[in-house]
Design a binder for these strands. Structure first.
Lengths: 184, 184, 184, 184
DNA sequence: TATGAATGAGCGTTCATTCAT
DNA sequence: TATGAATGAACGCTCATTCAT
């Protein structure tokens, strides 16, 4: 209610980004019009230009401010490494899966926008490296038998990502059990 | 040269679809203009409307006529089932991988166009069913130990598809070896 | 510092007119935005509307309050008529030339704005009448030979005005000498 | 009626330039909208863009294709130099005056458009040079007494131009007689 | 069959203006 | 007094589509 000017401005900015994210995810960046975004935010199109220089700038802001790459990097540090590899791996993948679910709209923008391809590729390679490194560690300790960790990481990451994207969620523990049956 | 009228018409139609596929894959359906397509086909925009009712109709035609779902279904029948499961599975996945590579432009359209989401989902579920059925058969014969075949199919299919789409091709035999180590 | 309310208001009003004159002269009335003027005055656009009803009103105010027609009329009265006609004429024209130079920005507004055409025409005809009347007086006294004073006035006035406007200043004494060689 | 395609296109192009010239002269380049021009030409705004890349390109085309600098240069060559200087000068200035009258609208564009200042300056300096050169020639032959030809040229040119621009046409023979009384 | 001139709707964007604070 | 968030109308321009030739 009694908001200060700058609070109001910050709130409006986020509201516009929310609307843009929703609309871009729904119609694609090219398919969505500035008017669509404005209507979703219940403001007039002109107002968008007080907060963003252009439609393209809105996309860039979404990608940079709403990107979840930093969160992805934190995921690994949060795992309790004293526990068995399959358990840690399962939790890691489930956390990643939740991250994707929470950012489903942003993922849709990633997939539809040409300029979002770069961030998407970064996200994938970071995620795969995260898992690959973990597998290498557990091979070093002898807990896991030596295997192609890059391939395993790609497999795990791709499977989780694709099924989340397609809206066909999977039992991640089962996925891990599939790849590491004896270690379970 | 001495083409009949209907031959010429059919040829022109395909030529226009070729151009549309190329352009839509490059710029996205929304990002590409009818003029872009016409220029790629070296004709004038007006001519497109003798062959297609609208830009949207071009997309639909591409999706229905250039779709490779039928080809995907043939893949399974072409395998020599007298051979060991890992071999057949590897060949099946490699054939699918080649199919994706050969239809890279169509895949790009699948990903960029909102109306292509349905066909894409169908493609994925068909592919997964194909592999899942094969796995079930080989469990029935006792060659493969019982396991979650749906999950395995999803895993294999997703991994191949994602890496092809990302342009990071993988060793499919190794992927199969990863999931079925003892049976190799 | 310790300005009364109305002093402050008057000062702000002039400051805004200064800024408007500068900006309109630089970009043309149509080419300049209200935001441009506000920025030049280091205030916000909204404030302009406390002092002027509209952008157009700013132009009108500039034209009426900053117009130099009154000053032009004073010019004639300031001349010492006891001196020879060419000298007085030269000084009169030089004073007019200085007036134009001092009001270069306003002249630019005159030329760029459609609504300023009227005032501009008035300025020119007044100037020509001023000079024409002077020439007539001196013909009456016999100092100048009878000639087409209207034409002479137009010629003198146009030459000074055009060259000032074009930024190609001229030797006004020489101009007078050209038209009145024997009387010099 | 039975126009070929390219004839029609050329005709339409000229028609659009005509309309643009009229509208720009009337409202100024900045003050005129593309819609204004289209309405004046009785077409839709979109059509303008088949013939010109932008509104700015229309102005540039008007300036380059409808400019009368070449015609100005021909004027001098057309004079019969065997006749007395005042006669030739009068005819030259009258021809220039007619040129300005015939191109009144283009002159208006020159005055209102920032990008037209260059061509305008060129026009003025060319015209002044033309007259100045003529005066020098006749001083060389002894017909005219030595005088400041640059100033005389500026004076003559400015007077004709200003009065034509202001719509107050003058007796050019009288103007010449004013500057060269003894030679008449 | 094929062209390309022409349209009309809508695009992203700007801007004069208003008004709650 | 002064701000700046917000609006609405228009702007320059693009584009899918139509149609006379």
């Amino acid at each position: 209610m009694a908001r200060t000017r700058s609070e109001q401005a910050a709130w409006r900015r986020e509201q516009l980004l929310d609307a843009a994210l929703r609309v871009f995810a729904d119609k694609g960046v090219d398919g969505a019009t500035v008017k669509d975004v404005a209507q979703a935010a219940e403001v007039t199109p002109g107002l968008l230009y007080r907060y963003f220089d252009s439609k393209e700038a809105m996309v860039e802001t979404l990608l940079s401010e709403r990107g979840f790459l930093p969160r992805l990097r934190e995921l690994r540090a949060e795992q309790d490494d004293s526990r068995p590899a399959p358990e840690v791996l399962t939790e890691l993948l489930e956390a990643f899966d939740r991250l994707l679910a929470d950012n489903a709209e942003l993922m849709a923008v990633f997939f539809s926008s040409a300029q979002a391809r770069g961030p998407l590729a970064t996200l994938v390679s970071e995620g795969q490296r995260l898992i690959g490194d973990f597998l290498l560690e557990r091979i070093d300790t002898g807990e896991l038998r030596p295997h192609d960790t890059v391939m395993a990481a790609r497999t795990l990451f791709a499977t989780v990502a694709v099924n989340r994207r397609l809206g066909t969620p999977i039992d991640i523990a089962a996925l891990v059990g599939l790849l590491f049956p004896e270690e379970g």
